[in-house]
Design a protein around this nucleic acid. Structure first.
Lengths: 333, 333
DNA sequence: TTGTAGGCGTTATCAT
DNA sequence: ATGATAACGCCTACAA
């Protein structure tokens, strides 16, 4: 197949018409006789002609590509998240004739993203994670490339899509309250991730509604927990905490491991819950109540909004509410 | 920033030279006076000019993109694999000024891949998994697009990179033999994955070298195992099997779960090993001996070879040998 | 060493 | 309804 690919000129010559006409038959734009249109289209089908995307891109000033920024440090917890999100994105983009260019996010410099933008290789960008201090977003804003972020942003001229983290977390808490939990501790959460704040908000609201106090001392930072897991856990037990809520399954896993080492029984001695359910705890023999989000739908929403923006339509912030409260385990290995 | 981007014409006009000269200064090709080159380059640096990748692509007939085909059905076991491979690929491509376009592989039609190829949006393709019956590979061959596959191929005009699966599996077996295992069973492996054959080969060789017979009846197909886990496990115990070797951690997980349910002790009653170590079993409280491969290096190798091929240089099949035999657990949750 | 002109494969603007 | 012709932004013989 190394014969040079067919061009619009070849078609024009073969059909004895001008390439303008051929172009019109293909694009559907501009007036053209029904007969000639059919003639061109059937020729195209028969000879399996495919327009050259780059030439079209150059003429139309667009690439039909979007970039998806992919965190390089994805751990076992968020890996399935990003994977599913990506599938959702591609579902939409491929339907609309767009392709996805992956950019690995190595640190705040965002060198790869910069290159892609500088070279004008994409029409828009999806950021798969929202940071409070987000240099990628700042850079994109400045370069006036359309983008949407996954995760709520305070910034009014940023378009975002997000799970309904606050509601989900509140629902999880309600479930736990219903099961009889009285006193809660909260562990973990990267303070630079916007999502951490929303989960915290949901947590507080649920406490408020239940008439329970929010106790700052029962709110453990991830870094502190990693340093002094043992002391913190026994401290929480002494304080009669009946449920430990973890920001995600990675934290929950640490908690489970430590409890096991320390001979703390779950759920007899204490209950464990997680604000994000990955699959890594499916092996756990101890039960963990958690939230399952619809990542694929989130990806689809992000893709739809970025395409909106690219087309010049008005995008909107989308909240995906199709989460589920999950009761996991017990399963033992 | 919505002023139109600068072009080489702008530069040429500003500097009072022709755009040919500007082009030459940028590309380094063709003779050009040192003074003018410097003048152009410093102008470019000062005004932060970036060439338009699409225009260049159209002129040079290349996209500076490669496609990476990503399995949509990636499970927890292979997800980290693909993630790490992708990072390895991007390390190399971004260094060479190439970008990565992701194509989700939804079944044998390979519609997304086809679109990308038909639209000539990439210069080459990396297939991240090798099937014995590989329609994607067949399609790529036919369309004469450079590609490399991850996983050994029998086909002589396919370029591939792979882990040294056979050697790794043999080493794992040697380790088990050293630990005193005498009789082995082998479970799992998708029969359409090329890798299954190689692992089987390593398994057989190790048995041969140890003077042990290869017993077909101790070789369980994944589909059979899933149907009748319990019977198969007790059958293996009756046959005095001392070690169950699993094709990957997903199988190992099933085996562990069943053993737990059936009250089979590990490693007292039987030992478990896996030919591929993901992270999903890091939570297991039972020890599993397994192999850790260097996925990132594999990705780098694939990227290097596809770039070779694109440049018209002679690519070679690469075997990445940096694997490690791992002894996991016991950790309990 | 530098410049002119034509080509890469489309789309878009005018005429006709 | 159709066709010349000029963009789009860059590369590259060929000339000077």
């Amino acid at each position: 197949m190394s014969e040079k690919a067919m061009t619009i000129d070849d078609i024009a010559r073969d059909l004895g018409i001008s390439k303008t006409t051929v172009s019109r038959a293909i694009s559907g734009k501009g007036r053209i006789g029904n007969a000639t249109r059919e003639r061109v289209l059937s020729y195209i089908k028969e000879h399996d002609y495919k327009p050259n995307a780059m030439a079209r891109g150059l003429a139309e000033q667009r690439t039909c590509n979007i970039a998806v920024v992919w965190p390089m440090d994805a751990n076992l917890v968020d890996m399935p998240f990003f994977q599913k999100v990506l599938v959702g994105i591609c579902d939409v983009t491929s339907r609309e004739g767009y392709d996805v260019l992956i950019t690995i996010d190595r640190g705040p410099e965002a060198v790869d993203l910069r290159r892609v933008i500088d070279n004008r290789k994409v029409d828009g960008v999806i950021l798969t994670r929202t940071l409070l201090e987000d240099l990628s977003a700042a850079f994109l804003k400045e370069s006036s490339v359309p983008f949407v972020t996954m995760g709520t942003s305070e910034d009014n001229d940023i378009t975002w899509v997000d799970n309904d983290n606050e509601a989900a977390c509140r629902e999880l808490m309600e479930q736990l309250l219903e099961e009889g939990c009285k006193r809660f501790a909260l562990i973990g959460g990267d303070e630079n991730y916007a999502i951490t704040g929303q989960r915290l908000a949901g947590y507080k609201k649920a406490l408020l509604e239940a008439g329970l106090p929010f106790e700052q001392e029962l709110c453990i930072r991830q870094s502190d927990f990693e340093k002094a897991t043992g002391e913190i856990l026994s401290g929480l037990l002494e304080k009669k905490v009946s449920c430990i809520v973890c920001m995600d399954d990675a934290i929950a896993r640490e908690v489970l491991l430590s409890c096991h080492d320390m001979g703390i029984g779950i759920p007899q001695d204490i209950r464990i819950a997680s604000f994000y359910s990955s699959q890594i705890l499916e092996n756990a023999k101890s039960p963990v109540t958690s939230i399952r989000f619809d990542e694929r739908a989130l990806g689809e929403a992000a893709a739809e909004q970025i395409l909106c923006k690219i087309r010049g339509e008005k995008p909107r912030n989308v909240i995906v509410s199709s989460h589920q409260i999950m009761k996991k385990g017990p399963i033992g290995l």
